[in-house]
Design a protein around this nucleic acid. Structure first.
Lengths: 148, 148
DNA sequence: TGATATAGACAACCAAGTTGTCTAATCTGG
DNA sequence: CCAGATTAGACAACTTGGTTGTCTATATCA
């Protein structure tokens, strides 16, 4: 079947909820990662996550409400709102990584180390191929045009 | 990263669009499969796909609009609307399977037959584990309660 | 027969996206 | 140096797939 990753992400979400981050979804973690690795404002975040800047701004604002990031006007360019990950944001991220690690370990127990690595390699190939064209927003919902 | 299956499903969607089924999403195919393997009305479909009956009814009605299923009152129990997959519905499904087959073959070329099988086995384990508790609606959106 | 359960419809809502329009700030080029 | 273009971000309206909650019609059970 095809629900593999969904499964993983869902479990991580539930587990994170159990550990005191009840209102976090995969998207949020995803966004935090993008911010940590360089996206400093809404537009950049949008580009980094292949989403319109409006959607990114929305994600940011919920992240801000929940206390995971803070925003302040960029002194150098006053159009921009510079993003910073808060303490709580950082602990969410490390907790998230820990949870993932645990899930991965569990799976490794179930299935064997080699098998798991093999599987990861395959999946990497799969996403690697189209990482090239992570452009076009709306790959999952709207689009469907298939860029002829 | 973790977008492996998404990737696969998205590509299949795009490819199907290209082949004359432009308004089909993974959900729809998923629902058709559930119907084919026994779900005869909205409530059953909902149960089968771990979704409320209302959501299922909605999916059905778009599927009906697009001409993939038809509905008629069940003569034996006039509360029920019996579902039938139309000709077009069947061809969608086989086209869908063909596309998937092709994608799988492509991946097999890229990565080798054994590796692919191994990966599939791992993923099967992953989803298999929690197939047991495919109950609780809302695993992906609302929930988060983690059934304490 | 009457209480209860089930099927499905309808309405209101949510989350995460999308467009499209708009203002404010910055950049660029004549 | 200033006019025009570009960019950042906000706001509003809409879409999809899902959720409750309420309601009617039909079945079923005691």
């Amino acid at each position: 079947m095809l629900a593999g990753f969904r499964t993983l992400a869902d479990r991580a979400t539930v587990e994170l909820g159990r550990r005191g981050y009840p209102d976090v979804r995969p998207v949020h973690d995803f966004a935090l990662h993008a911010i940590r690795s360089g996206a400093q404002n809404a537009s950049e975040l949008g580009r980094a996550t292949s989403v319109t800047k409006q959607a990114a701004a929305r994600t940011i604002s919920t992240l801000e409400q929940r206390g995971y990031v803070s925003r302040q006007v960029d002194p150098a360019d006053r159009r921009k709102m510079r993003l910073m990950i808060t303490e709580r944001g950082h602990s969410l991220m490390s907790e998230g990584e820990a949870v993932f690690e645990e899930l991965r370990n569990q799976l490794e127990l179930d299935v064997g180390a080699e098998a798991l690595e093999q599987a990861e390699a395959v999946l990497r190939t799969l996403v690697g191929e189209n990482a090239v064209r992570l452009d076009s927003p709306g790959w999952s919902t709207g689009g469907l045009d298939g860029d002829e």
